[in-house]
Write a protein that binds this DNA or RNA. Sequence first.
DNA 1: TTGCGGAAATTGATATATCAAGTTTCAGAT
DNA 2: ATCTGAAACTTGATATATCAATTTCCGCAA
Lengths: 222, 222
Amino acid sequence: MGGDDALLPVEPVFLKSLRDHVYGLVRDAILAGRLKGGEKLNERHLASQLGISTTPLKEALRVLEAEGLVRSEPRRGIYITFNAGQAEEMMLARAALESMIARQAAKRVTDEDIALMCELIVEMRAGLETVDVLQFIALNERFHNAIHEASGCGYLRRLQGGQNIYTHAARLSVLSEERERFLAVEEHQAIANAIAAREPDLAERLMRDHVIRSGEKHLLRV
Amino acid sequence: MGGDDALLPVEPVFLKSLRDHVYGLVRDAILAGRLKGGEKLNERHLASQLGISTTPLKEALRVLEAEGLVRSEPRRGIYITFNAGQAEEMMLARAALESMIARQAAKRVTDEDIALMCELIVEMRAGLETVDVLQFIALNERFHNAIHEASGCGYLRRLQGGQNIYTHAARLSVLSEERERFLAVEEHQAIANAIAAREPDLAERLMRDHVIRSGEKHLLRV
DNA sequence: TTGCGGAAATTGATATATCAAGTTTCAGAT
DNA sequence: ATCTGAAACTTGATATATCAATTTCCGCAA
Protein backbone atom coordinates (compact mmCIF):
# COMPACT_ATOMS: atom_id res chain seq x y z
CA MET A 1 0.00 0.00 0.00
CA GLY A 2 1.06 3.60 -0.48
CA GLY A 3 2.41 4.71 -3.81
CA ASP A 4 5.78 6.28 -4.49
CA ASP A 5 4.50 9.53 -3.15
CA ALA A 6 3.15 8.13 0.10
CA LEU A 7 5.92 9.94 1.89
CA LEU A 8 7.49 13.09 0.61
CA PRO A 9 11.07 14.01 1.39
CA VAL A 10 11.57 16.20 4.41
CA GLU A 11 11.62 19.80 3.39
CA PRO A 12 14.91 21.42 4.36
CA VAL A 13 12.80 24.43 5.23
CA PHE A 14 12.34 23.15 8.74
CA LEU A 15 15.95 23.79 9.56
CA LYS A 16 16.15 27.52 9.16
CA SER A 17 19.71 28.65 9.18
CA LEU A 18 20.92 31.59 11.18
CA ARG A 19 21.68 33.33 7.96
CA ASP A 20 18.09 33.06 6.70
CA HIS A 21 16.76 34.12 10.05
CA VAL A 22 18.92 37.21 10.10
CA TYR A 23 18.04 37.98 6.51
CA GLY A 24 14.37 38.03 7.47
CA LEU A 25 15.01 40.20 10.50
CA VAL A 26 16.97 42.84 8.62
CA ARG A 27 14.63 42.79 5.64
CA ASP A 28 11.60 43.35 7.84
CA ALA A 29 13.39 46.11 9.71
CA ILE A 30 14.10 47.88 6.44
CA LEU A 31 10.61 47.46 5.00
CA ALA A 32 9.02 48.51 8.28
CA GLY A 33 11.17 51.63 8.32
CA ARG A 34 13.02 50.78 11.53
CA LEU A 35 16.16 50.98 9.43
CA LYS A 36 15.76 54.05 7.28
CA GLY A 37 17.01 54.79 3.78
CA GLY A 38 20.51 56.25 3.69
CA GLU A 39 21.46 54.74 7.04
CA LYS A 40 24.85 53.07 7.25
CA LEU A 41 25.19 49.58 8.66
CA ASN A 42 28.21 48.40 10.59
CA GLU A 43 28.80 44.68 10.16
CA ARG A 44 30.48 44.16 13.51
CA HIS A 45 28.07 46.24 15.53
CA LEU A 46 25.08 44.60 13.88
CA ALA A 47 26.53 41.12 14.30
CA SER A 48 27.28 41.58 17.98
CA GLN A 49 23.92 43.27 18.47
CA LEU A 50 22.29 40.17 17.01
CA GLY A 51 24.59 37.95 19.03
CA ILE A 52 26.11 36.22 16.00
CA SER A 53 29.36 36.31 14.07
CA THR A 54 29.83 38.32 10.92
CA THR A 55 29.83 35.34 8.56
CA PRO A 56 26.08 34.64 8.42
CA LEU A 57 25.38 38.36 8.59
CA LYS A 58 27.57 39.06 5.59
CA GLU A 59 25.71 36.42 3.62
CA ALA A 60 22.36 37.89 4.60
CA LEU A 61 23.53 41.36 3.59
CA ARG A 62 24.69 39.97 0.27
CA VAL A 63 21.18 38.68 -0.43
CA LEU A 64 19.65 42.00 0.55
CA GLU A 65 22.09 43.68 -1.79
CA ALA A 66 21.07 41.35 -4.62
CA GLU A 67 17.48 42.32 -3.93
CA GLY A 68 18.37 45.98 -4.09
CA LEU A 69 17.44 46.90 -0.52
CA VAL A 70 21.01 47.80 0.46
CA ARG A 71 24.09 48.84 -1.46
CA SER A 72 27.58 47.76 -0.51
CA GLU A 73 30.64 49.82 -1.29
CA PRO A 74 33.79 47.72 -0.96
CA ARG A 75 35.78 48.70 2.13
CA ARG A 76 33.48 51.62 2.71
CA GLY A 77 30.27 50.35 4.14
CA ILE A 78 26.75 49.15 3.58
CA TYR A 79 23.99 51.67 3.04
CA ILE A 80 20.26 51.18 3.03
CA THR A 81 18.84 52.25 -0.31
CA PHE A 82 15.19 51.38 0.15
CA ASN A 83 12.84 54.35 0.11
CA ALA A 84 9.34 55.34 -0.94
CA GLY A 85 10.26 55.59 -4.60
CA GLN A 86 11.69 52.10 -4.60
CA ALA A 87 8.59 50.81 -2.83
CA GLU A 88 6.51 52.13 -5.69
CA GLU A 89 8.84 50.57 -8.24
CA MET A 90 8.67 47.24 -6.45
CA MET A 91 4.91 47.44 -6.71
CA LEU A 92 5.25 48.09 -10.44
CA ALA A 93 7.65 45.15 -10.73
CA ARG A 94 5.10 42.97 -9.02
CA ALA A 95 2.45 44.19 -11.44
CA ALA A 96 4.67 43.44 -14.42
CA LEU A 97 5.60 39.94 -13.26
CA GLU A 98 2.20 38.99 -11.91
CA SER A 99 0.55 40.04 -15.15
CA MET A 100 3.07 38.04 -17.17
CA ILE A 101 2.22 35.05 -14.99
CA ALA A 102 -1.48 35.63 -15.64
CA ARG A 103 -0.73 35.75 -19.35
CA GLN A 104 1.03 32.40 -19.22
CA ALA A 105 -1.76 30.98 -17.08
CA ALA A 106 -4.30 31.93 -19.75
CA LYS A 107 -2.27 29.90 -22.21
CA ARG A 108 -1.84 26.75 -20.14
CA VAL A 109 -4.76 26.68 -17.73
CA THR A 110 -6.54 23.35 -17.19
CA ASP A 111 -10.17 22.80 -16.32
CA GLU A 112 -9.19 21.83 -12.79
CA ASP A 113 -7.35 25.10 -12.37
CA ILE A 114 -10.44 26.98 -13.53
CA ALA A 115 -12.64 25.06 -11.14
CA LEU A 116 -10.38 25.96 -8.23
CA MET A 117 -10.32 29.64 -9.12
CA CYS A 118 -14.10 29.73 -9.38
CA GLU A 119 -14.43 27.99 -6.04
CA LEU A 120 -12.20 30.51 -4.36
CA ILE A 121 -14.11 33.41 -5.85
CA VAL A 122 -17.37 31.95 -4.59
CA GLU A 123 -15.86 31.76 -1.12
CA MET A 124 -14.57 35.30 -1.33
CA ARG A 125 -17.95 36.55 -2.48
CA ALA A 126 -19.52 34.83 0.50
CA GLY A 127 -17.00 36.52 2.79
CA LEU A 128 -17.68 39.97 1.35
CA GLU A 129 -19.87 41.15 4.18
CA THR A 130 -18.37 39.11 6.96
CA VAL A 131 -15.81 40.81 9.10
CA ASP A 132 -13.29 37.98 9.07
CA VAL A 133 -10.65 39.96 7.24
CA LEU A 134 -7.95 37.42 8.02
CA GLN A 135 -9.79 34.74 6.11
CA PHE A 136 -10.40 37.11 3.21
CA ILE A 137 -6.68 37.81 3.06
CA ALA A 138 -5.97 34.08 3.04
CA LEU A 139 -8.44 33.51 0.20
CA ASN A 140 -6.88 36.37 -1.68
CA GLU A 141 -3.51 34.72 -1.45
CA ARG A 142 -4.87 31.34 -2.43
CA PHE A 143 -6.46 32.84 -5.51
CA HIS A 144 -3.19 34.32 -6.68
CA ASN A 145 -1.45 31.06 -5.88
CA ALA A 146 -3.97 29.19 -8.02
CA ILE A 147 -3.02 31.37 -10.97
CA HIS A 148 0.67 30.81 -10.26
CA GLU A 149 0.12 27.06 -10.28
CA ALA A 150 -1.84 27.27 -13.51
CA SER A 151 0.94 29.25 -15.17
CA GLY A 152 3.57 26.63 -14.44
CA CYS A 153 6.10 29.46 -14.12
CA GLY A 154 8.21 28.63 -11.09
CA TYR A 155 10.91 31.20 -11.72
CA LEU A 156 8.55 34.09 -12.43
CA ARG A 157 6.59 33.17 -9.35
CA ARG A 158 9.69 33.25 -7.22
CA LEU A 159 10.89 36.54 -8.67
CA GLN A 160 7.46 38.03 -8.10
CA GLY A 161 7.50 36.83 -4.51
CA GLY A 162 10.58 38.93 -3.88
CA GLN A 163 8.63 42.09 -4.71
CA ASN A 164 6.14 41.65 -1.89
CA ILE A 165 6.74 44.43 0.61
CA TYR A 166 3.37 45.00 2.20
CA THR A 167 3.21 44.39 5.89
CA HIS A 168 0.45 42.36 7.42
CA ALA A 169 -0.82 45.53 9.03
CA ALA A 170 -1.18 47.26 5.65
CA ARG A 171 -3.09 44.31 4.18
CA LEU A 172 -5.35 44.24 7.17
CA SER A 173 -5.95 47.94 6.96
CA VAL A 174 -6.74 47.97 3.25
CA LEU A 175 -9.08 44.98 3.19
CA SER A 176 -10.91 46.18 6.27
CA GLU A 177 -12.85 48.45 3.96
CA GLU A 178 -15.84 46.66 2.50
CA ARG A 179 -15.58 48.62 -0.73
CA GLU A 180 -12.02 47.38 -1.14
CA ARG A 181 -13.11 43.77 -0.68
CA PHE A 182 -15.86 44.30 -3.23
CA LEU A 183 -13.41 45.71 -5.77
CA ALA A 184 -10.99 42.85 -5.16
CA VAL A 185 -13.64 40.22 -5.79
CA GLU A 186 -14.88 41.91 -8.94
CA GLU A 187 -11.38 42.23 -10.31
CA HIS A 188 -10.54 38.66 -9.44
CA GLN A 189 -13.71 37.52 -11.16
CA ALA A 190 -12.76 39.40 -14.32
CA ILE A 191 -9.25 37.97 -14.24
CA ALA A 192 -10.56 34.44 -13.73
CA ASN A 193 -12.96 34.90 -16.62
CA ALA A 194 -10.17 36.07 -18.91
CA ILE A 195 -7.97 33.15 -17.97
CA ALA A 196 -10.83 30.67 -18.33
CA ALA A 197 -11.56 32.13 -21.76
CA ARG A 198 -7.90 31.64 -22.67
CA GLU A 199 -7.41 35.32 -23.43
CA PRO A 200 -3.77 36.10 -22.51
CA ASP A 201 -3.83 39.76 -23.50
CA LEU A 202 -6.94 40.50 -21.47
CA ALA A 203 -5.78 38.50 -18.45
CA GLU A 204 -2.45 40.30 -18.48
CA ARG A 205 -4.02 43.74 -18.65
CA LEU A 206 -6.59 43.05 -15.96
CA MET A 207 -3.99 41.62 -13.62
CA ARG A 208 -1.66 44.55 -14.13
CA ASP A 209 -4.39 47.06 -13.40
CA HIS A 210 -5.52 45.07 -10.38
CA VAL A 211 -2.06 44.91 -8.84
CA ILE A 212 -1.37 48.58 -9.49
CA ARG A 213 -4.70 49.78 -8.19
CA SER A 214 -4.62 47.76 -4.98
CA GLY A 215 -0.87 48.37 -4.66
CA GLU A 216 -1.36 52.11 -4.62
CA LYS A 217 -3.92 51.68 -1.89
CA HIS A 218 -1.34 49.76 0.15
CA LEU A 219 1.41 52.28 -0.42
CA LEU A 220 -0.76 55.01 0.98
CA ARG A 221 -0.90 53.23 4.34
CA VAL A 222 2.75 53.88 5.03
CA MET B 1 37.47 77.96 -12.73
CA GLY B 2 35.83 74.55 -12.37
CA GLY B 3 32.45 74.31 -10.69
CA ASP B 4 31.48 71.96 -7.91
CA ASP B 5 31.07 69.20 -10.47
CA ALA B 6 34.46 69.64 -12.08
CA LEU B 7 35.52 66.36 -10.50
CA LEU B 8 33.10 63.59 -9.70
CA PRO B 9 33.66 61.19 -6.81
CA VAL B 10 35.54 58.02 -7.63
CA GLU B 11 33.19 55.19 -8.39
CA PRO B 12 33.77 52.28 -6.01
CA VAL B 13 33.26 50.10 -9.06
CA PHE B 14 36.96 50.23 -9.80
CA LEU B 15 37.80 48.12 -6.81
CA LYS B 16 36.17 44.85 -7.71
CA SER B 17 36.14 42.53 -4.77
CA LEU B 18 37.09 38.90 -4.95
CA ARG B 19 33.53 38.05 -4.12
CA ASP B 20 32.15 39.94 -7.11
CA HIS B 21 34.76 38.45 -9.36
CA VAL B 22 33.90 34.93 -8.29
CA TYR B 23 30.22 35.68 -8.62
CA GLY B 24 30.75 36.61 -12.25
CA LEU B 25 32.85 33.55 -12.93
CA VAL B 26 30.33 31.10 -11.51
CA ARG B 27 27.37 32.88 -13.09
CA ASP B 28 28.94 32.77 -16.52
CA ALA B 29 29.85 29.13 -16.07
CA ILE B 30 26.23 28.31 -15.26
CA LEU B 31 24.74 30.36 -18.09
CA ALA B 32 27.26 28.99 -20.57
CA GLY B 33 26.39 25.47 -19.52
CA ARG B 34 29.83 24.58 -18.19
CA LEU B 35 28.08 23.92 -14.88
CA LYS B 36 24.96 22.02 -15.76
CA GLY B 37 21.54 21.99 -14.11
CA GLY B 38 21.24 19.50 -11.26
CA GLU B 39 24.97 19.49 -10.61
CA LYS B 40 26.07 19.70 -7.00
CA LEU B 41 28.66 22.22 -5.92
CA ASN B 42 31.16 21.61 -3.15
CA GLU B 43 32.15 24.80 -1.39
CA ARG B 44 35.61 23.65 -0.36
CA HIS B 45 36.51 22.06 -3.65
CA LEU B 46 35.30 25.05 -5.59
CA ALA B 47 37.07 27.48 -3.28
CA SER B 48 40.40 25.69 -3.49
CA GLN B 49 39.95 25.24 -7.21
CA LEU B 50 39.55 29.01 -7.49
CA GLY B 51 42.43 29.55 -5.07
CA ILE B 52 40.36 31.46 -2.52
CA SER B 53 38.83 30.82 0.86
CA THR B 54 35.23 29.84 1.34
CA THR B 55 34.11 33.19 2.74
CA PRO B 56 33.88 35.18 -0.49
CA LEU B 57 32.65 32.09 -2.33
CA LYS B 58 29.80 31.62 0.12
CA GLU B 59 28.76 35.21 -0.41
CA ALA B 60 28.84 34.80 -4.17
CA LEU B 61 26.76 31.63 -3.94
CA ARG B 62 24.27 33.45 -1.76
CA VAL B 63 23.78 36.04 -4.48
CA LEU B 64 23.37 33.35 -7.11
CA GLU B 65 20.80 31.72 -4.88
CA ALA B 66 18.91 35.01 -4.53
CA GLU B 67 18.89 35.21 -8.32
CA GLY B 68 17.50 31.71 -8.57
CA LEU B 69 20.41 30.14 -10.44
CA VAL B 70 21.31 27.76 -7.60
CA ARG B 71 19.42 26.35 -4.65
CA SER B 72 20.99 25.79 -1.27
CA GLU B 73 19.76 23.13 1.12
CA PRO B 74 21.10 23.78 4.63
CA ARG B 75 23.80 21.29 5.57
CA ARG B 76 23.11 19.34 2.42
CA GLY B 77 24.63 21.15 -0.47
CA ILE B 78 24.23 23.62 -3.29
CA TYR B 79 22.58 22.52 -6.49
CA ILE B 80 22.43 24.26 -9.82
CA THR B 81 18.82 24.84 -10.78
CA PHE B 82 19.23 26.75 -14.02
CA ASN B 83 17.93 24.97 -17.09
CA ALA B 84 16.29 25.64 -20.45
CA GLY B 85 12.87 26.20 -18.90
CA GLN B 86 14.25 28.79 -16.54
CA ALA B 87 16.08 30.49 -19.37
CA GLU B 88 12.74 30.94 -21.14
CA GLU B 89 11.15 32.26 -17.96
CA MET B 90 13.98 34.71 -17.47
CA MET B 91 13.32 35.94 -20.97
CA LEU B 92 9.65 36.40 -20.08
CA ALA B 93 10.64 38.22 -16.90
CA ARG B 94 12.78 40.54 -18.95
CA ALA B 95 9.85 41.14 -21.30
CA ALA B 96 7.55 41.91 -18.38
CA LEU B 97 9.96 44.31 -16.71
CA GLU B 98 11.25 45.96 -19.85
CA SER B 99 7.70 46.59 -21.03
CA MET B 100 6.77 48.08 -17.67
CA ILE B 101 9.78 50.37 -18.00
CA ALA B 102 8.63 51.38 -21.49
CA ARG B 103 5.19 52.12 -20.07
CA GLN B 104 6.67 54.42 -17.44
CA ALA B 105 8.92 56.02 -20.04
CA ALA B 106 5.87 56.87 -22.13
CA LYS B 107 4.47 58.70 -19.12
CA ARG B 108 7.56 60.69 -18.19
CA VAL B 109 9.56 61.08 -21.38
CA THR B 110 11.08 64.48 -22.12
CA ASP B 111 11.76 66.01 -25.52
CA GLU B 112 15.48 65.46 -25.03
CA ASP B 113 14.88 61.76 -24.42
CA ILE B 114 12.85 61.55 -27.61
CA ALA B 115 15.57 63.31 -29.58
CA LEU B 116 18.16 60.83 -28.35
CA MET B 117 16.03 57.83 -29.24
CA CYS B 118 15.40 59.16 -32.72
CA GLU B 119 19.11 59.82 -33.20
CA LEU B 120 19.96 56.28 -32.22
CA ILE B 121 17.38 54.84 -34.58
CA VAL B 122 18.77 56.90 -37.43
CA GLU B 123 22.21 55.49 -36.67
CA MET B 124 20.87 51.97 -36.51
CA ARG B 125 19.06 52.42 -39.79
CA ALA B 126 22.31 53.58 -41.36
CA GLY B 127 24.04 50.50 -40.03
CA LEU B 128 21.43 48.12 -41.39
CA GLU B 129 23.44 47.01 -44.37
CA THR B 130 26.87 47.41 -42.94
CA VAL B 131 28.50 44.37 -41.50
CA ASP B 132 29.69 46.00 -38.30
CA VAL B 133 27.54 43.84 -36.07
CA LEU B 134 29.40 44.91 -32.93
CA GLN B 135 28.43 48.53 -33.46
CA PHE B 136 24.85 47.52 -34.13
CA ILE B 137 24.78 45.61 -30.86
CA ALA B 138 26.14 48.66 -29.05
CA LEU B 139 23.51 50.91 -30.61
CA ASN B 140 20.86 48.40 -29.63
CA GLU B 141 21.96 48.60 -26.03
CA ARG B 142 22.14 52.37 -26.07
CA PHE B 143 18.59 52.54 -27.39
CA HIS B 144 17.27 50.42 -24.54
CA ASN B 145 19.33 52.46 -22.10
CA ALA B 146 17.78 55.65 -23.43
CA ILE B 147 14.35 54.25 -22.59
CA HIS B 148 15.54 53.24 -19.13
CA GLU B 149 16.80 56.74 -18.50
CA ALA B 150 13.55 58.25 -19.73
CA SER B 151 11.56 56.02 -17.40
CA GLY B 152 13.43 57.15 -14.32
CA CYS B 153 12.94 53.66 -12.88
CA GLY B 154 16.23 52.71 -11.30
CA TYR B 155 14.98 49.69 -9.42
CA LEU B 156 13.08 48.21 -12.37
CA ARG B 157 16.11 48.75 -14.54
CA ARG B 158 18.34 46.94 -12.12
CA LEU B 159 15.93 44.06 -11.71
CA GLN B 160 15.62 43.79 -15.46
CA GLY B 161 19.38 43.72 -15.82
CA GLY B 162 19.52 40.58 -13.73
CA GLN B 163 17.43 38.77 -16.31
CA ASN B 164 19.99 39.17 -19.07
CA ILE B 165 21.36 35.75 -19.87
CA TYR B 166 22.33 35.94 -23.50
CA THR B 167 25.98 35.43 -24.24
CA HIS B 168 27.88 37.75 -26.50
CA ALA B 169 28.13 34.89 -28.97
CA ALA B 170 24.36 34.52 -29.13
CA ARG B 171 23.85 38.24 -29.70
CA LEU B 172 26.45 38.21 -32.41
CA SER B 173 24.88 35.22 -34.05
CA VAL B 174 21.34 36.60 -34.02
CA LEU B 175 22.14 40.08 -35.28
CA SER B 176 24.40 38.73 -37.98
CA GLU B 177 21.28 38.13 -40.01
CA GLU B 178 20.27 41.23 -41.94
CA ARG B 179 16.59 40.36 -41.64
CA GLU B 180 16.98 40.34 -37.86
CA ARG B 181 18.60 43.76 -37.88
CA PHE B 182 15.78 45.04 -40.07
CA LEU B 183 13.15 43.69 -37.68
CA ALA B 184 14.95 45.18 -34.69
CA VAL B 185 15.05 48.64 -36.24
CA GLU B 186 11.40 48.55 -37.26
CA GLU B 187 10.34 47.43 -33.81
CA HIS B 188 12.50 50.03 -32.12
CA GLN B 189 11.02 52.68 -34.36
CA ALA B 190 7.49 51.63 -33.40
CA ILE B 191 8.38 51.63 -29.71
CA ALA B 192 10.01 55.06 -29.95
CA ASN B 193 6.92 56.39 -31.75
CA ALA B 194 4.63 55.05 -29.03
CA ILE B 195 6.76 56.57 -26.28
CA ALA B 196 7.05 59.89 -28.13
CA ALA B 197 3.26 59.90 -28.53
CA ARG B 198 2.93 59.29 -24.78
CA GLU B 199 0.96 56.10 -25.29
CA PRO B 200 1.88 53.84 -22.33
CA ASP B 201 -0.35 50.91 -23.29
CA LEU B 202 0.99 50.75 -26.81
CA ALA B 203 4.61 51.20 -25.76
CA GLU B 204 4.25 48.44 -23.21
CA ARG B 205 2.71 46.00 -25.67
CA LEU B 206 5.23 46.71 -28.43
CA MET B 207 8.16 46.35 -26.06
CA ARG B 208 6.83 43.07 -24.67
CA ASP B 209 6.38 41.61 -28.13
CA HIS B 210 9.80 42.86 -29.19
CA VAL B 211 11.62 41.30 -26.24
CA ILE B 212 9.77 38.00 -26.57
CA ARG B 213 10.25 37.74 -30.31
CA SER B 214 13.94 38.51 -30.29
CA GLY B 215 14.37 36.55 -27.07
CA GLU B 216 13.02 33.40 -28.65
CA LYS B 217 15.50 33.87 -31.46
CA HIS B 218 18.31 34.03 -28.91
CA LEU B 219 17.13 31.01 -26.97
CA LEU B 220 17.28 28.91 -30.14
CA ARG B 221 21.03 29.53 -30.40
CA VAL B 222 21.79 27.46 -27.34
C1' DT C 1 21.30 -12.21 1.89
C1' DT C 2 19.07 -8.62 4.38
C1' DG C 3 18.66 -5.15 7.72
C1' DC C 4 20.15 -2.62 11.48
C1' DG C 5 23.46 0.16 14.20
C1' DG C 6 27.35 3.01 14.79
C1' DA C 7 31.70 4.86 13.74
C1' DA C 8 34.16 7.59 10.29
C1' DA C 9 34.16 10.86 6.72
C1' DT C 10 31.95 14.85 4.37
C1' DT C 11 30.44 19.17 4.22
C1' DG C 12 27.83 23.25 5.00
C1' DA C 13 27.27 26.56 9.09
C1' DT C 14 29.37 29.38 12.23
C1' DA C 15 33.03 31.69 14.83
C1' DT C 16 37.34 33.94 15.08
C1' DA C 17 41.67 35.88 13.55
C1' DT C 18 44.17 38.52 10.22
C1' DC C 19 44.73 41.73 6.31
C1' DA C 20 44.36 45.95 4.02
C1' DA C 21 41.73 49.94 2.39
C1' DG C 22 39.67 54.05 4.09
C1' DT C 23 38.82 57.55 7.66
C1' DT C 24 39.94 60.40 11.41
C1' DT C 25 42.97 62.85 14.40
C1' DC C 26 46.42 65.81 15.69
C1' DA C 27 51.13 67.55 15.97
C1' DG C 28 54.12 70.46 13.43
C1' DA C 29 55.47 73.46 9.74
C1' DT C 30 54.23 77.55 7.05
C1' DA D 1 44.91 80.23 11.45
C1' DT D 2 45.63 76.87 7.78
C1' DC D 3 47.55 73.18 5.46
C1' DT D 4 50.14 68.91 5.50
C1' DG D 5 51.09 64.31 6.47
C1' DA D 6 51.89 60.55 9.25
C1' DA D 7 50.07 57.61 12.79
C1' DA D 8 46.14 55.55 15.04
C1' DC D 9 41.73 53.85 14.40
C1' DT D 10 37.68 51.76 11.77
C1' DT D 11 35.89 48.59 9.12
C1' DG D 12 34.92 45.63 5.32
C1' DA D 13 37.51 41.69 2.93
C1' DT D 14 39.61 37.47 3.35
C1' DA D 15 41.53 33.33 5.50
C1' DT D 16 41.37 29.71 8.79
C1' DA D 17 39.58 26.92 12.53
C1' DT D 18 35.76 24.73 14.77
C1' DC D 19 31.00 22.92 15.10
C1' DA D 20 27.31 20.05 13.87
C1' DA D 21 24.16 17.85 10.57
C1' DT D 22 24.24 14.53 6.98
C1' DT D 23 25.90 10.92 4.46
C1' DT D 24 28.68 6.90 3.71
C1' DC D 25 30.56 2.70 4.86
C1' DC D 26 31.35 -1.44 7.26
C1' DG D 27 30.56 -5.11 10.44
C1' DC D 28 27.42 -7.84 12.99
C1' DA D 29 23.16 -10.14 13.85
C1' DA D 30 18.83 -12.34 12.19
